[in-house]
Amino acid sequence: MIKHKLALAVAATILTATAYGQSARDYISIVGSSTVYPFTTAVAEQFGKANANFKTPKVESTGTGGGFKLFCGGVGVQHPDISNASRAIKKSEIETCAKNGVTEIVEINIGFDGIVLASSKKNKPMPLTIKDLWLALAKEVPDPATGKLVMNNFKTWKDINAALPANKIEVLGPPPTSGTRDAFVELVMDHGCKEFPAIKDLEKADEKKAKATCQTIREDGVFIEAGENDNLIVNKLVANPNALGIFGYSFLEENLDKIQGETINGVAPSFETIADGKYPVSRPLFVYAKKAHVGVIPGIKEFIAEFTSEKAMGDEGYLARKGLIPLPNAKRKQVAMDANALKVMAP
């Protein structure tokens, strides 16, 4: 009986391996971040034009979290080869990958991006601060009279800051699966809350509860989840001049004829202010590749070489023209060297 089961298991393994070889994809499958999507798509198109031997990669916008779920699902042609991410992969995601046999991951920091708060050009710009944004969007905020935490009942920007207009607070933003949402929480919500004594007191008593209070966004209709399609947010801003939208800088740059970026802490989002670190809401962008698929799916190594080339990622590269903020020269060279050597992340 045991021998019979063993024979069946061996046969199944052989059949699986044969099927794997027969049904191997002849194109690279890429999923993940909507922010990184336009950059990876540009590289995919360039790669397809320049390499007659390889098909143009298929790039899908699933959001960073959704991309990692697919990427970490396993090794084999039914799973993506590459995942775009607008934040670094989490420890929990690396663990999920490992459980499913995805143990050799190549991390490529492709550059930087800023998260912007944008509005229609029909509206007068607002001089926002990170503190203002937290008060506008947090589920619980300190009561102005007592300082104690209460449910957020601010209705207009003027309620928060007398220097701001009496416009209704309405913010269109990404869902929890989005790397942009993760980065916004980390760079805005986590920082904005720290300015209040009530949060500092809570942190001393219950650090976990304080963190949740800082990060939890209100659910009373003021913050509207607009999905992973940043172009949809742009269109909604044009239709509703009083609303603000949260998305990556590249989408602002592509639509400067219709929308504008709000200043945050006195700094306007621009290529220069994100590159030099003056703009407070900026973050690194990544591409993750599955080393086990190199040599099985044609073109992965060559695609990585194209992505990390100076003509793509350089100061004057075609990705910079699409809004990617390039890495400093020395860092860029190191990233390219490690990526092309298929250097894997430490477990």
Rank of each mutant, 00 (worst) to 15 (best):
M126Q: 14
R25D: 09
A183G: 11
G66R: 09
R283A: 05
E95D: 14
Y20G: 15
I217P: 01
V59T: 14
A11N: 03
A183Q: 14
K124G: 03
H293G: 10
P38Y: 05
P326C: 13
R218M: 03
K3W: 08
G192T: 02
A239S: 06
P326T: 04
P142K: 07
N235T: 08
I264V: 13
E262N: 15
I304K: 10
V188S: 00
I30R: 00
G179Q: 09
K301F: 02
L256A: 04
P298N: 05
P125F: 12
A166K: 11
G179R: 05
P125I: 10
A268W: 04
L8G: 02
T13F: 14
G21D: 14
S33E: 01
Y318N: 13
V267A: 08
K168P: 00
A42N: 06
L187I: 00
P174S: 14
E107K: 15
I130H: 00
S120K: 00
G248Q: 05
A312Q: 09
I30W: 02
F154C: 06
K69Y: 12
A239M: 06
F303Y: 13
T18Q: 13
C97K: 09
K69N: 12
K204A: 13
A9R: 10
A212Y: 08
L256R: 13
S86E: 06
K3S: 02
N265C: 00
T64H: 04
G66L: 08
L149M: 11
E302P: 07
Y37Q: 02
D206R: 06
F303P: 10
K99M: 12
V116Y: 07
K122H: 03
V59M: 12
T156S: 14
G21S: 14
A11T: 11
R283G: 00
D132S: 09
I30D: 02
E203G: 01
E203R: 07
G147Y: 08
T41G: 02
E170R: 11
M189H: 05
P57D: 11
A268M: 13
K139S: 12
A12N: 14
K258G: 02
V287R: 06
G323L: 08
